[in-house]
């Protein structure tokens, strides 16, 4: 999705109550409507309707974020992709269909795309390169680096 273009609707403005709800849910996304209501001095029904409104306007989403390891992913690769002689978006669409590619950013610079790829074992590199990426036309360069430590990984702001 485009960062600006697809979200050119009005930016939802938050009142004090909504900011309070978001702060509590950020700390603990499992806080019940009643717990939130008691802390903010409103009714559970009000909390429920505000959360619904915030999620429907795509201002925020309460999520259960799971770790790569919970899905058995042992290896993370950051891969730069260069496309030649073909529409970059068409290549991105095909890459997006690959299950091991969990994020794609279209970028400026030496590469056209930056992928994050999650694999369960080194055996899957062969499948990725020969069967999956190898069958996509238009990729002229692929530069893969192995992530051996994730020092910081914030995920509380994202395109919704």
């Amino acid at each position: 999705m485009q960062i600006r273009e697809s979200n050119d609707g009005a930016v939802p403005t938050l009142d004090e109550l909504e900011t309070g709800i978001i702060d509590i849910l950020r700390e603990n996304g499992r806080a019940t409507n009643l717990e939130i209501a008691e802390r903010l001095g409103v009714t559970a029904a009000t909390v429920s309707s505000r959360i619904k409104r915030l999620e429907e306007s795509r201002a925020m989403k309460v999520v259960a974020v799971s770790d790569f390891a919970a899905h058995g992913f042992e290896i993370l690769l950051a891969v730069g992709v260069k496309v030649t002689g073909r529409d970059v978006d068409a290549v991105a669409t095909e890459l997006a269909a690959l299950p091991e590619v969990f994020s794609i950013n279209m970028v400026t610079g030496r590469f056209d795309m930056e992928l994050l790829v999650a694999l369960r074992s080194f055996d899957e590199i062969a499948v990725l390169l020969t069967e999956h990426v190898g069958n996509i036309q238009g990729i002229s360069d692929l530069d893969a680096g192995v992530v051996y430590d994730v020092v910081k990984f914030e995920f509380n702001v994202a395109p919704l």
């Binding site: 999705m1 485009q2 960062i3 273009e5 603990n28 989403k61 999520v63 259960a64 974020v65 799971s66 770790d67 790569f68 899905h71 993370l76 978006d89 991105a92 669409t93 890459l95 997006a96 590619v101 969990f102 994020s103 794609i104 950013n105 279209m106 970028v107 400026t108 610079g109 030496r110 590469f111 930056e114 999650a118 994730v150 020092v151 910081k152 990984f153 995920f155 994202a158 395109p159 919704l160």
Partner: peptide, 24 residues
């Protein structure tokens, strides 16, 4: 430092990440 700007993310799942913070 090689810099590239993301123009958009055709694929992104906010629910999959590395959880590095202290345990809840």
């Amino acid at each position: 430092v090689e810099v590239s700007w993301s123009i958009g993310a055709p694929k992104y799942d906010a629910r999959l990440a590395r959880i590095t913070g202290p345990a809840e």
